[in-house]
Design a protein around this nucleic acid. Structure first.
Lengths: 341, 341
DNA sequence: CTGTTAGCGCTTTCAC
DNA sequence: GTGAAAGCGCTAACAG
């Protein structure tokens, strides 16, 4: 690989001059010299060695993102889209993504190692939980990072999140507009922070419509098909007149459980029961009926996170310290209405 | 961040000694000094700066992996599992993964840039196609890389691939064992190299069972649901006695199309028609009936690729220059047989 | 057994 | 306008 010395020799100038020209530094260099340097660099195919540049500038131009353990069963439904968006945005901002893995139960040492060795300039933290230890650690270290997801109302840090409350609220509004009055929700455990926002949207939506919450219509469970099954079974055990006519599932996976249980009992989803999921997981479009669901603006979030992090790394104050992005209600067939296309 | 100088000062030795001790170099250092250095390093929390080390050793300890554009519709079904496996294996071997994006139509410049700037020590190339230009380029550059997938029989490079031929062959054997004689296949276009191996397995399997190929039972199409629909429709248009009783789809997505078309026509998959897919995509388990499919040993492949690449980077000859890994037939309900466990 | 020293390739201050 | 030289933090050849 040619180095800056080779270019200097080729152009008949000093390496300092080469550096000035190629980095377009505000240093008075004659147009003639500039041209010679560029020509020489081009000729021998010179590209600056990033390691040397990193050492000099103490910047790795690498952004860290942790790839979480994927349970053999449920491959995460949106992580790949998110990673892709991150990589794209990072490259546009002059970084590359360093993806690493960290054990769920003790992630801190890995983050610490990456910081101490100077591997990365900042982190993008995803899949946050309430009081997320990674976030606590990074705040404490004063190391640049941004988070996809909230963690604790009293902590001050940069984050972007999907507005689950707004999204589920819009889903309720949509169902109410379709004439539904008995709307149920299959939610996550109370411990889930992300879940709590979505649930708040459910409550708020009902209130807006003047519908009193029927406690039987609100059931919590894990993020799996079984939880959907169980919730749906409980609702269908109710006398016909008291059953919900529409269900909002807190995720597509849960929605699938609801759907199969309803069909197992002879109901037709989209006709006898309307159903809305959350995530727009790849399988949502493949279900029959195709699932109406709330799609998170993953690509936009990824891009915005990188921009935010870039500012933080530069020591600037981003225009907004956190932003809530509304999900989009993707209309398909599980509410009995054909999408407009 | 403390540097090697700080450790040297703290321990009262030279920086060279610190380097020797911490890197466990075969340099005679007294046990007493070793202990002092370790203690000093521990005390001030020293971790070697990787950039400086990289510059010195001209090794980035970074492995590049391209994240391909993901169509909004079909999020790739196994890529996230693969990336995770790669990251895990890389870390175990002392690397981190640098994930980047490259335009499908002109990926070379990105690879070139990464090489020229010294960003990565090697590449893992995935989603290969016949005569893959990236592979041609990397061979020509003599830059270390390994490939998940084959590209051209006459090129010599390191690769690991799923043995699609063996897998589909095993699927045919399984169906034959179940008593099927009229076994159809929904394949990809002839241009697909990966597809050609799977197809070869179909032909070989039939031959083993002494079944003559019925040309009507072999239909090619794209990798989407529509292709499955179309193939299935063509088969169901045949007189009942001439229809296939079992179908092997070249991917789970195609299998879904077959399944829906069959059910739309009133057939029950798993009873009237047996169906096997390929990939074990996340949605395969969620279909009703859950899809019997061939699961690629993604995690093993990722780990083996990294090991292979590590050898190549070190300039060693890996024990095997290419390996074929058999997929596993995951028994579910789409062939009318309940899985054992 | 331990220390001195020469770089790795680059950026940037300071001279000229 | 341009160049000499220091130095980012580390490794390793060589001296002592």
């Amino acid at each position: 690989m040619p180095t800056i010395k080779d270019v200097a020799r080729e152009a008949g100038v000093s390496i300092a001059t080469v550096s000035y020209v190629l980095n377009d530094k505000t240093q008075a260099i004659s147009a003639e010299t500039r041209a010679r340097v560029w020509a020489a660099a081009e000729k021998i195919g010179y590209r600056a060695n990033v390691t040397a540049r990193s050492l000099r500038s103490s910047q790795s131009r690498l952004l860290g993102y942790a790839w979480h353990e994927i349970a053999p069963e449920q491959s995460n439904t949106v992580l790949d889209r998110f990673s892709y968006a991150l990589a794209r945005a990072a490259e546009a901002a002059g970084y590359y993504m360093l993806t690493f893995t960290a054990p769920e139960d003790d992630p801190i040492p890995v983050y610490e190692e990456l910081i101490r060795t100077g591997r990365v300039d900042g982190f993008i933290v995803g899949s946050t939980v309430r009081d997320d230890p990674r976030i606590r650690f990074l705040i404490e270290q004063k190391f640049p990072f941004v988070s996809f997801g909230r963690a604790n109302e009293t902590w001050d840090f940069l984050w972007i999140d999907t507005d689950g409350e707004q999204g589920v609220g819009a889903a309720v509004d949509y169902l109410v507009g379709l004439g539904h009055k008995r709307i149920a929700m299959a939610a996550w455990p109370e411990a889930s922070l992300t879940g709590s926002f979505r649930v708040a949207g459910y409550f708020a939506g009902l209130k807006r419509a003047g519908i009193d919450l029927n406690p039987a219509f609100f059931i919590r469970g894990e993020n799996d098909e079984v939880a959907g099954h169980d919730a749906c079974a409980a609702w269908l055990d109710l006398p016909p007149k008291e059953r919900p006519t529409a269900v909002i599932a807190i995720s597509d996976v849960v929605a699938i459980g609801v759907m199969y249980e309803a069909e197992r009992r002879g109901l037709t989803v989209g006709k006898d029961l309307s159903l809305i999921g959350f995530d727009d997981a790849p399988m949502a479009a493949y279900l029959r009926p195709a699932l109406t669901t709330l799609r998170q603006p993953i690509a936009e979030i990824g891009a915005a996170l990188v921009t935010m992090l870039d500012e933080a790394i530069k020591g600037n104050q981003p225009p907004q310290r956190h932003v809530l992005m509304p999900p989009k209600l993707v209309l398909r067939y599980s509410c009995g209405v054909a999408p407009k296309s």
